[in-house]
Design a protein around this nucleic acid. Structure first.
Ligand code: ZN
Ligand code: ZN
Ligand code: ZN
Ligand code: ZN
Lengths: 149, 149
DNA sequence: AGGCGTCCGGTTACATTGTAACCATCGGCG
DNA sequence: CGCCGATGGTTACAATGTAACCGGACGCCT
């Protein structure tokens, strides 16, 4: 959980994007780093305020466009139940995720979805539904906050 | 899928609420019926416009409060990825659900979550996380829209 | 080099979604 | 009757997200 860890994550993400031929511009880099620096979900406007303070973003659309890019490349996820974004160090292309969201400390832990995805695919197949994207978010209390209750 | 079916759903929902001792007011009844009448997710402001036209709701907060009540009682669900609401005829108290959301026709089919919930509980338990609420939404194409492609 | 097309982001001006805060009313209950 | 909790009317915003238009950068072809 050190700062170094997160910087590394951003740096490695940029390498992966470069290898993939994606255009990694200054704005996108700034948004990526800002996301990776946090270990909590961040709202688009929070992000905007940070970047604006450093003259790195001009207006909300810039931030949303960068976020769309990062989500599309699988370097970030949007948490639908928080309207917030988190960086992702999985480095695959646009994978889906299951988030354990703590309402005590606002942490959001990403966990693999293999088993859940399989079940979702089953549910969908039974009804002839073609899955494109999956949102799985669990709200509750993490181990720490549960103890602290 | 007849209109009668939806009216019945609303009527039975009201009975269940009454038996439960919940206060079913005119506003809440109106919102419930409006929700059940649709077979698609409805935005809060769409709902508001409908009710306003009949002088049934005065302002957005009224609608949101009624929706919170209905969701709390398990008579409606919020779709986080659409910012919209759907009625529910399950009549249990505040159950969770899995929605198959078609981006072609905007239908949202609610399917049971027993298997998924089990897997989510497993994922959570492994990390000492206490689950309170679960959001599972799958976006894609329903059988009809897939064929029509 | 010059022209072209595409991608990116700046900018403005909104649209949509959701809420805080305060007060009036209503209905049960001591 | 007077209190109290629940409900909802009202105002005024806050927070989140976008459409549309433009200009600059960069690669690519001639
Ligand atoms: Zn991820
Ligand atoms: Zn926590
Ligand atoms: Zn339901
Ligand atoms: Zn469809």
């Amino acid at each position: 959980m050190s700062t170094a860890h997160h910087c590394d994550a951003a740096a490695r993400a940029e390498q992966v994007l470069a290898r993939r031929g994606a255009r990694i511009t200054q704005l996108r880099r700034d948004v990526l780093r800002a996301l990776m620096r946090e270990d909590r979900p961040v709202g688009a406007y929070q992000l905007f305020d940070q970047l604006k303070a450093r003259d790195a973003a001009s207006a909300p659309p810039a931030v949303y466009r960068a976020l769309d890019f990062l989500v599309g490349e699988g370097m970030a996820h949007k948490l639908q139940s928080l309207n917030a974004y988190v960086g992702c160090a999985c480095f695959e292309h646009a994978h889906d995720a299951h988030f354990l969201i703590c309402r005590g400390c606002n942490a959001a832990e990403e966990v693999p979805t293999t088993a859940i995805r399989k079940q979702v695919d089953t549910d969908a197949a039974e009804r002839g539904f073609a899955v494109e994207r999956m949102v799985v978010e669990t709200v509750g209390l993490c181990a720490d906050c549960k103890g602290r209750a």
